[in-house]
Design a protein around this nucleic acid. Structure first.
Lengths: 210, 210
DNA sequence: TTGTTTAAATTAAACGTTTGTTTAACTTTG
DNA sequence: CAAAGTTAAACAAACGTTTAATTTAAACAA
């Protein structure tokens, strides 16, 4: 765990925001320095290079993701469906709370060339799959969940739906009743709507009830 | 409908591939010129600028998307579920056949700044939603589909799942039985697997059968 | 409290590349 | 011969990074 000072955190925060909006190559270190109100040289001074800064942004969020996963493993008292529900709730919550970072991840995972970041992304995704799979297969063995479910693709469906909704927000928001909603209340509305949709979807495919 | 000569089509094709792999800003016009085996100046000569080239790539694919949508509207003899099934089949097929372009679209829709391309993306997506919604709502009115379905999010789920599987392919492929599969047969395998998963998902949430 | 020392922080300027685009000369084609 | 196609070279601007000078801050001895 690395501890950054205020200025370093400001740079990381601004970089995350700008990388998300304009992409890594679409953002210059001068842009970052200007918005973060620091000298251009400070970025090289603190992080070494622009690439290393991106890595810092990733490590900063990924460590939290790792902790997030381990935290989810517990609670064996819940029923399989309850476990899936809390899993959905927490993923939706987490991903809507770090939308900028999710944008960057969405972009980076498309890159053809392999990189340390590339590996990190797929390692974490693999760990999340390793978390979800036993919940489902155990419930299948116990006769609680239906068989014939493609767990990998179900995971993909969850991530894909949340990822897809992030850039689509401004379209949803054009509905007249949502237009003059506070930013925070809209996020809450979206969180609930996403969560409800995914739970219905998962319940329908996993159990045969509604 | 614009007609391009061979050289222009080569540039568009190479640009699509490289933009998909490395992003728009991550690809230089020199890269494109080199791979397409044309002089750098020809890109400006034919398309005006790098931005216009991206627009050309988009128009080239988007016109096909428009035609694709209009083609789907027909066939009123099918049951609602059959309509949804063919919709899924054809979307999966289409998107897996133009993966490079889907990568570019995935990237571009994340951009903060609005652009002609941005508008085009969301216009087409809106048209696709306008195609799916009546199928579902009509079936709901007829009592065939269950109510309480978030059509917008169901659409998002379909697009999100397919979009998400494109960069995740090389992970799925690490399974021993898929490792030494022909590229084309793997694509066929993936097409079937995706299609099956989405149909099960949609059938489960729309009807209450399995 | 002083003055001195030392390392970290900060800055403006300059560095060499690479960028997208244009030029002007040349070749091909109809 | 005129228009379109093609080329290597040159363009200014922007890029990420480094330099060298300066300021700040903390530590230490008198």
């Amino acid at each position: 765990m690395e501890d950054y000072n205020e200025k370093q955190l400001a740079i990381i925060s601004v970089a995350e925001k700008l990388f998300a909006e304009k992409g890594f190559h679409g953002t210059s270190v001068r842009d970052i320095a200007q918005v973060a109100e620091v000298n251009i040289a400070m970025i090289s001074y603190y992080f070494g290079s622009k690439d290393k800064l991106l890595e810092a942004v990733f490590r900063h969020r990924m460590e939290a993701s790792r902790a997030f996963i381990n935290e989810l493993v517990q609670n064996d008292t819940m029923s399989p469906l309850e476990k899936i529900y809390t899993l959905i709730d927490r993923f939706v919550n987490k991903m809507l709370n770090e939308q900028s970072f999710q944008c960057i991840m969405n972009r980076e995972q498309l890159n053809g060339e392999k990189s340390p970041i590339h590996n990190l992304i797929w390692t974490v995704k693999g760990e999340m799959l390793g978390l979800m799979r036993p919940i489902i297969t155990n419930a299948q063995d116990a006769g609680i969940f239906h068989t014939g479910i493609d767990v990998e693709l179900l995971m993909t469906t969850m991530f894909g739906t949340i990822h897809q909704i992030i850039p689509a927000q401004h379209i949803l928001r054009k509905e007249p009743e949502l237009k003059n909603m506070n930013d925070e209340t809209f996020k809450e509305y979206l969180r609930l709507r996403l969560s409800t949709h995914l739970k219905k979807l998962f319940k329908a495919i996993l159990t045969h009830e509604f």
